[in-house]
Amino acid sequence: MIVIDELARRACVDRGLNPPPEVTPAKALTLAESDIADLGSIVAAALAHSPAARTLLAALEAEQTVPETAVRDYYDRNQDRFLTPQALRRGVSPFDGAAPEDVLPYDEVRQGIAHELRTAAGRQAFFGWLDQARAGVKYSHGHEHPGDPSHPDHEHRH
């Protein structure tokens, strides 16, 4: 987490970004379990404690462009996510030929889909940045872990 924070601080300086002041440990952010599962525990912990990492992630998300065709394709392929509450109460399945009125209109969900796709693309960009930034980091012997995926014993516990 300390390495990710330091790398993110340097990246923010390089990009001219100004992270907010440090968060005291008592006021560290909490992340949803789904975010932890999507990000991995080390990256999630770093984001919870590092304003610089959060600032960098936000900048990377803002840089992402999601084509309208990708948003529409996501909507068309994931009709089960867009069933109306009434259709869900009736037990309608999008896989068994839901009627058009059983699915929320594209215009109502388009912005939410674009936001989800931009968030996912931003996270991918953050992971790519982190992999590249960590490539030059040299750890002192014995300090390669825990949490360093390049170390063969990165999951051991103390």
Rank of each mutant, 00 (worst) to 15 (best):
R81V: 04
Y139N: 12
A32H: 15
A59D: 15
Q124Y: 00
S34T: 13
L17H: 06
G97T: 01
F127G: 07
P146L: 08
Q111F: 10
A28V: 02
L7I: 03
V3H: 03
T24A: 14
D73N: 06
R15H: 11
C12H: 11
A37N: 04
A52R: 11
G112T: 08
D148H: 04
P85D: 12
D131T: 13
A52M: 10
D80W: 06
A48F: 01
R90Q: 05
Q111W: 06
L47Y: 03
P25V: 08
S140R: 15
P146S: 07
L7T: 10
W129M: 10
D35C: 05
Y139K: 11
G97Q: 01
L17V: 04
L117A: 07
A135N: 14
E155Y: 08
Q111R: 13
A62C: 08
R81E: 14
F82T: 00
L57C: 13
S41V: 11
L47V: 00
M1K: 02
L7Y: 03
T30F: 01
P21E: 05
Q79P: 00
A87T: 01
P19N: 01
Y106I: 10
P25K: 13
T30E: 10
S140K: 13
G40T: 05
H154I: 02
T69A: 15
A98P: 00
S34Q: 11
E63P: 02
L56Q: 10
D76S: 05
L7D: 07
R9L: 08
Q111A: 15
A58C: 07
A53S: 10
P51L: 09
R81D: 14
F127V: 13
D96Q: 07
D38A: 15
Q79E: 04
P21V: 05
V109K: 00
A98S: 00
A133H: 06
P19S: 03
V23Y: 07
Q64C: 15
P25C: 06
D76R: 04
H154R: 08
P146V: 14
H158V: 07
S34V: 12
T24K: 12
L56A: 10
D131C: 03
Y139F: 15
A87Q: 03
T55C: 15
E116V: 06
P146M: 06
R54T: 01
G40K: 12
P20L: 11
T119V: 14
A87R: 06
A32G: 13
H158Q: 03
S93Q: 12
H49W: 02
L47C: 04
M1C: 08
D153F: 13
L60P: 09
H115N: 12
A37T: 12
A87E: 04
S140W: 09
R54L: 07
H143R: 14
D107N: 00
P20R: 10
G16T: 01
I42L: 08
A114I: 06
